[in-house]
């Protein structure tokens, strides 16, 4: 990738306000997601991170504002065009949302069957690969209801990656996972971004992954319904004056300090 390309914004949010009826969740958000970055949407529970994510992927029409995908207004595009734009996305929702009447393998295979012309054996190979990436190669024949919460999440991640999306959106990918698996997921996300050139948007609470992989982000405040900080989680941790952001980031520092204290 050239230097110029890396400065391009893939997603641009302008004056976005999301609301349920008269209950405004977040107002006046404006930010850009640069190409090949790993962009974090941060904030306390219930501040509207997932809702903002839903507006960004077009599942929820914003009350006001626009979302531009590669410079194209998502809302203004027709339904047919929207479906084409969406195909660049891969979405892992918070609950996983696997199709419960299909096996895990079929879940990953369905987008491939729908949108590619691969034959059955190529699809099989791709499905095996995606499931192996998340460490679930042995679960292909299982039904989602037979999996544990963490496994379901990983299977949903494999499905989100089925079509090799340019812009994967991950809503709390490592919530409920053990530290080792969670670390492996971080590596996978880094690989997607730096190796395959994807632009990742990620909602997470996990401070270790925030600091380890995200190079840009926005911090949403639930009380005021506005964005209160902007930048890489690491630099927010080290240099942000806002008390809410500081409290969010400090929790992690205290935890690591404590770990260091007992470790030495």
């Amino acid at each position: 990738m050239s230097r110029d390309e890396s400065l391009l914004s893939r997603l641009e949010v302008r004056n976005l306000t999301v609301a349920f009826g008269t209950n405004v969740v977040q107002r006046d958000l404006s930010f850009e997601v640069r190409a090949h970055s790993i962009f974090a949407v941060m904030g306390g529970s219930g501040c509207g991170k997932s809702t903002v994510l839903k507006a960004m992927i077009g599942l929820l029409s914003p009350a006001t504002g626009t979302v531009l995908v590669d410079g194209e207004d998502y809302e203004a595009a027709g339904e047919r065009r929207r479906i084409e734009i969406r195909r660049r996305f891969g979405v892992l929702s918070q609950g996983g949302a696997l199709w419960s009447s299909m096996t895990v393998g079929e879940n990953v295979a369905l987008p491939l069957q729908m949108f590619t012309l691969f034959d059955a054996s190529s699809i099989r190979a791709l499905v095996d690969l995606k499931l192996a990436l998340v460490g679930l190669e042995s679960a292909a024949e299982k039904m989602p209801s037979e999996l544990s919460g963490g496994m379901r999440k990983r299977a949903a991640l494999a499905r989100a990656l089925a079509l090799d999306p340019d812009i994967p959106f991950f809503d709390e990918p490592s919530a409920g996972l053990d530290p080792i698996t969670s670390n492996r997921l971080d590596d996978l996300i880094l690989e997607l971004s730096s190796g395959l050139g994807a632009t990742v948007v990620i909602v997470t609470h996990e401070l270790p992954s925030l600091f380890a992989i995200c190079d840009d982000g926005i911090f949403l405040d639930g009380e005021t319904g506005r964005a209160i900080a902007r930048g890489a989680p690491r630099s927010l941790r080290d240099g942000c004056g806002d008390p809410t952001v500081r409290a969010f980031m400090e929790r992690g520092r205290r935890a690591t300090d404590a770990a260091r204290g007992t470790g030495s």
Partner: peptide
Amino acid sequence: NEEIDALKTFGI
């Protein structure tokens, strides 16, 4: 279960 949303996000 948000399975319908998952269909939509894939453009199905």
